[in-house]
């Protein structure tokens, strides 16, 4: 078997990209996003993308750079309020947008990866989100049918990984990454720390390697923070 481990960023998506494809991209805001693989998509220039991601980055960073380059045709997201360019493109009709409630989006991806074509949820019943969808009563309550979701490619970011494709995420950078890893026809993961086979605790692997086709050690991480919020040090003394 050929190694899953890819040495160069430029090779990580080789043969996986085509115009009009769908791509799932992990992360919440710009926390836990596959920075290096997003840059590789920009570098490649593939167009008319449908991108499934909870958010669309921020102006100039994360998926925001694919908005700037005009490579995204449609976004499937739950919240895009951090991105001025997004709003301009959408309101001027240059970008399609499908809003999914965050939990519905997460579950659609989980279901897609697990071979479940549809499920029923209370979320969104009676709202715009349920328009055109089957609504069914279970035990006296109404539920709307949502479809499982898969993509041509998933790009995810983990903290640690090994050449087998086993992944471990860190803190809230986990977010959508584990489900997306399962729901890509091809999945490419990037990691901050590459460990030797055997270097991960086998009882605490978040994404088993079966879901990962290729693994890249990210060449560089900027890891921007959207909203730095701190408390004054004096508070520690005051509360002590």
């Amino acid at each position: 078997m050929a190694s899953k481990l890819i040495q160069r960023t430029a090779d990580a998506l080789d043969g996986y990209l085509f115009d009009g494809m769908s791509i799932m991209s992990g992360g919440f805001g710009v926390c836990g996003i596959p920075e290096n693989l997003i840059a590789a998509i920009r570098e490649h220039g593939v167009r008319d993308l449908t991108v499934i991601s909870n958010n669309c980055g921020i102006d100039g960073f994360g998926l925001g750079i694919l908005l700037e380059s005009g490579q995204i045709k449609k976004m499937v997201s739950s919240y895009v309020g951090e991105n001025k360019l997004f709003e301009q493109l959408y309101l001027s009709g240059k970008l399609e947008l499908e809003f999914n409630p965050q939990g519905t989006l997460a579950e659609r991806i989980r279901a897609g990866g697990a071979g479940i074509p549809a499920f029923f949820t209370k979320t969104g019943v009676g709202t715009l989100v349920a328009e055109g969808k089957e609504v069914r009563e279970f035990d006296g309550e109404l539920y709307v049918m949502e479809r499982g979701l898969v993509a041509d490619l998933s790009i995810v970011k983990a903290h640690k990984g090994d050449a087998e494709g086993n992944l471990v995420y860190r803190k809230t950078a986990r977010n959508f990454n584990p489900m997306m890893a399962t729901a890509g026809r091809k999945t490419v993961a990037e990691v901050e720390v590459l460990v030797e086979i055997g270097g991960l605790d086998k009882d605490n692997i978040h994404t088993p390697g079966i879901f990962v086709d290729r693994l890249l050690k990210g060449a560089h991480y900027e890891k921007r923070i959207e909203r730095t919020t701190t408390r004054p040090r004096a508070e520690a003394g005051a509360n002590a």
């Binding site: 919440f28 805001g29 710009v30 926390c31 836990g32 951090e82 903290h159 860190r170 803190k171 809230t172 950078a173 890891k223 921007r224 923070i225 959207e226 909203r227 730095t228 919020t229 701190t230 408390r231 004054p232 040090r233 520690a236």
Partner: peptide, 22 residues
Amino acid sequence: PFPYEGEEDADLINAGKQTITE
């Protein structure tokens, strides 16, 4: 609570995208 200045962790945010602590 929010971290002390200089102790922010980009991998640790709340749903409002603010830096927090565990």
